[in-house]
Amino acid sequence: MINGISINYYLLLSAVLFIIGAVGVMARRNSIIIFMCIELMLNAVNLLLVSFSTLHNDASGQVFVFFIMAVAAAEVAVGLAILSMIYRNVKTIDTDVLSNLKN
């Protein structure tokens, strides 16, 4: 129990948020939306790390979330640079059009 809320509810909430992100990755074609859904999945995991950190009274989980945020910021910077370069060259970010490596 964390402040009267069972850890199971946090597990359930994180699972639902993660799966919404996963469905978004599968169901959308816009690369930017897919990127945003990946951010959503990262946040679901972050929430679970923080809740377990509070449950066990251990600060390592929260420090780890801090590092995940730093890595996510770096990932977004590089990823959006790649996307803007792709848009400049191909004039689209539709994932179905960007299939040059397929053949």
Binding site: I2, N3, I5, I32, F35, M36, E39, N43, N46, V50, S51, S53, T54, Q62, V65, F66, M69, A72, A73, V76, A77, L80
Partner: peptide, 23 residues
Amino acid sequence: LLNAQFLAVVHIVVYAGAIMVLF
């Protein structure tokens, strides 16, 4: 709610403030 005030503030600053503006 989880008593993680520092992470709450950092989350708003980094995600809502920086990353989403980039998007």
